[in-house]
Simulated assay, not measured.
Amino acid sequence: MTEQTRLAALSDAGVSIWLDDLSRQRLDSNNLVELIRESHVVGVTTNPTIFANALSHGDAYDAQMNELAARGASVADAVREATVADVRRACDVFRETWEATLGKDGRVSLEVDPDLAHDTVATSAQALDLWKSVDRPNLMVKIPATEEGLPAITNAIGEGVSVNVTLIFSIDRYRAVMDAYQTGLEQAAANGHDLASIRSVASFFVSRVDSEIDPRLEKIGTDEALALRGKAAVANARLAYAAFREVVAADRWQALAAKGAHVQRPLWASTGVKNKAYPDTLYVADLVVADTVNTMPEATLKAFADHGEVEGDQVTDFADDARRVFDALREAGVDVDDVFKVLEREGVEKFMASWDELGETVRQQLEAAK
């Protein structure tokens, strides 16, 4: 099986392949165009870590930094202008995909400032500002699924903004996200928006679940605990999909669908394998199911293209198995609720640290330009 055949099989199974990376170098070199043409990539996601890495390597941003420094732009304004420029260009690159899929794919995500993760009002305002600044219909604004983020998701959807909900770890929080989306659609309809123009994905972080639970199992150290290593992340995602199917079968969703609303597809995020003892395609091959997105770092994309296998739906009929995994985790002594609290807190903190790193990189570049 060729590289294109493997990725084509994944796409044919109903999995939209999005790249978890964007940089000006990737845009300038036409690498993104090549991935669309040759690797079935139909979308791209960004986050503060991705932009911090992009701006700290190479000279692709020098000309813009020189121009920003010349007019005395602040660090915050420079960060925003640089990131918006990249996302706007990527949206244009994906415009044909967006049109061909009737808005389902061809999406590019841009995240609100992580420092606002616990500020509903500021997140809502910035989401609308980013939507207007990028000014592309295939943008998705990323809003974290913190407790304060939930009403901001509703507010953004209610204003007709397409949203990528990020940093989802627990099934309970995921259900709250789906409720926030539906409430937002109901508000959008009341505000006169065309529901068919609004799209959303719910980014369920995968590999980080194993990265948090595995050390806890090793600390417990029993044979039963050790046998559960590497199983929690996939089980958690499978339970998320079961919750998704339950919600879209309910009367509330069916009423919205009758008005033209689109389902909020589950998105498998953080699918790069952190533990080298596990197959490098684990969080792709074991989560194949229709109506989902898998956003991959390029290394994972290449690994699947080289040796990944699509063996049919690996999610729909596995919910009971997934429940048994979590029952066993609790019986082994893992505090699952604490796991999800830690993952959300650390997820926000990591993006805040990357945002600070991004700001410091831009500050240095502006100083150098002066």
Results as ranks from 00 to 15, higher is better:
Ala63Leu: 13
Glu224Asp: 15
Thr222Asn: 05
Gln4Tyr: 08
Ile17Gly: 02
Val248Glu: 14
Ala240His: 08
Gly43Gln: 07
Ala69Gln: 03
Asn191Leu: 08
Ala8Asp: 15
Asn30Arg: 10
Arg80Trp: 09
Glu224Asn: 07
Ala122Lys: 04
Ser74Leu: 07
Leu366Ala: 10
Ile50Leu: 01
Ala90Thr: 15
Tyr241Ile: 09
Asn191Met: 06
Arg136His: 10
Arg245Gly: 12
Ala196Tyr: 05
Gly158Phe: 06
Arg208Cys: 01
Arg173Asp: 06
Met352Ser: 12
Thr5Arg: 14
Phe204Asp: 00
Val289Lys: 01
Val75Trp: 00
Lys350Ile: 14
Leu55Val: 10
Ala190Trp: 03
Val362Pro: 02
Glu357Gly: 09
Lys341Arg: 15
Gly260Tyr: 02
Asp223Ala: 15
Asn66His: 14
Val339Ala: 04
Ala82Gln: 10
Ile50Arg: 02
Gly308His: 01
Arg324His: 15
Leu239Ile: 09
Arg363Gln: 12
Gln364Met: 13
Met178Lys: 12
Glu67Asp: 12
Gly260Leu: 11
Ala117Arg: 03
Lys350Gly: 14
Trp268Asp: 05
Val209Pro: 01
Glu67His: 03
Asp172Lys: 08
Gly272Ala: 01
Met352Arg: 12
Glu111Ile: 08
Asp59Ser: 15
Arg330Pro: 07
Ala60Asn: 09
Gln64Cys: 12
Gly260Glu: 06
Met140Ala: 05
Asp28Gly: 10
Ala290His: 08
Phe94Cys: 04
Val339Asn: 02
Ser16Lys: 14
Phe340Gly: 07
Arg37Ile: 11
Leu195Ser: 03
Phe169Arg: 00
Arg265Thr: 14
Asp135Ala: 14
Val263Pro: 11
Glu346Thr: 13
Gly333Pro: 10
Val310Ile: 12
Leu32Phe: 08
Ile143Ser: 08
Gly149Lys: 06
Lys350Met: 14
Asp306Glu: 14
Thr2Met: 07
Val201Ser: 11
Arg37Glu: 15
Ile50Glu: 00
Val15Ser: 10
Leu343Gly: 00
Ser197Ala: 14
Thr49Ser: 00
Asp28Cys: 08
Phe304Lys: 04
Ser29Met: 10
Val348His: 05
Ile171Tyr: 02
Gln364Trp: 08
Cys91Phe: 07
Arg107Thr: 03
Asp210His: 00
Pro266Asp: 08
Leu358Tyr: 02
Asp251Val: 13
Met1Thr: 15
Lys231Met: 11
Val42Phe: 03
Ala9Leu: 11
Thr97Tyr: 06
Val234Glu: 04
Gln254Gly: 08
Val293Phe: 05
Thr146Lys: 01
Pro266Ala: 10
Thr281Phe: 05
Val209Asp: 01
